[in-house]
């Protein structure tokens, strides 16, 4: 199974990591769109299991969660879909989700089933490094990677603690706020990426607000090892509901364009 290390150590360029809500808007379309993104050059996938109360997400991903939930998406079906993705291509997969789903499924069972399906890491949006002990043993037992978030207002002390615990990559949040498309990346992210690169050897990947090729070039220049593209990807799905063919076409073009911007 391909690891994050395989991607980040061999890549001469910044890794492109699109984000999808699994099952949005339905399983078949969701799977096809993810395959399209893989074919168009995605290096890693960040996948969300939909939740009723996504407090870290802006309106675009909230709506995707609602669509996927109406489609009946849950943890079991998400693992099944991940198995299908892994059968299509051996690409590293991170989950990005909320803690209640994991607690409800059962922590130990969740990490075991996720690892068995081919998941490399689970980033829990509402679980801080302070409570890492609640899941760390299951991460370790299943040979998974550890990923936590660092935000522009994270103190130096917390940043070091997080850097030490992360093994896969550090999910670096570009700005203060929730997920969503932003016109520019703001002033906070470049210094943060540079600080993290100086402080740690763990790959530094940037998310929240990344939607244009120029954002990717800017973050690549700052030294980011990877970029997450979430709301912009999900927006393509939202704008092409009922027209999966057109969604695939636009998704392919968009991912290709973003991928080109990752070349250093």
């Amino acid at each position: 199974m391909k690891s994050y290390h395989d991607v980040f150590s061999k890549n001469k360029r910044t890794a492109l990591i699109p984000f999808f809500v699994l099952g949005d808007p339905d399983d078949a379309t969701s799977l096809e769109l993810i395959k399209t993104a893989i074919d168009a050059g995605a290096d890693v996938l960040e996948l969300g299991i939909p939740f009723s109360d996504p407090i870290a997400d802006g309106p675009t991903i909230q709506k995707a969660d609602i669509r996927a939930l109406e489609n009946g998406m849950n943890c079991e079906r998400s693992f099944e879909m991940i198995r299908q993705i892994k059968a299509y291509r051996d690409i590293p997969i991170g989950l990005l989700m909320y803690y209640n789903l994991i607690c409800h499924y059962g922590r130990e069972k969740f990490y075991r089933d996720a690892a068995a399906a081919g998941v490399n890491s689970v980033l829990v949006a509402d679980l801080c490094v302070d409570d890492a002990d609640e899941v760390q043993e299951f991460i370790r037992a299943n040979g998974m990677e550890t990923v936590y978030m660092v935000t522009p207002n994270t103190s130096a002390e917390r940043r070091l603690k997080i850097g030490k615990l992360c093994s896969g990559f550090i999910y670096t949040v570009s700005t203060l706020g929730v997920t969503g498309i932003r016109t520019d990346m703001g002033k906070l992210v470049e210094p943060l990426v540079k600080t993290l690169k100086a402080e740690t050897k763990v790959p530094v990947c940037v998310g929240f607000g990344v939607s244009l090729p120029e954002h990717v070039r800017q973050l690549a220049a700052a030294g980011a090892d990877g970029v997450f593209v979430g709301s912009a990807v999900v927006k393509i799905i939202e704008q092409n509901l009922g027209n999966p063919h057109q969604a695939r076409e636009q998704m392919g073009k968009y991912i290709e364009q973003m991928r080109q911007a990752t070349e250093r």
């Binding site: 679980l127 935000t151 207002n153 103190s155």
Partner: peptide, 22 residues
């Protein structure tokens, strides 16, 4: 280890990292 803000197993602070400083 005794955790902060707990009532038995209940409570805690399950929030995104961005809210921790506040």
């Amino acid at each position: 280890m005794e955790k902060q803000g707990r009532y038995g197993d209940f409570g805690g602070y399950y929030v995104p990292e961005v809210l921790m400083p506040a």
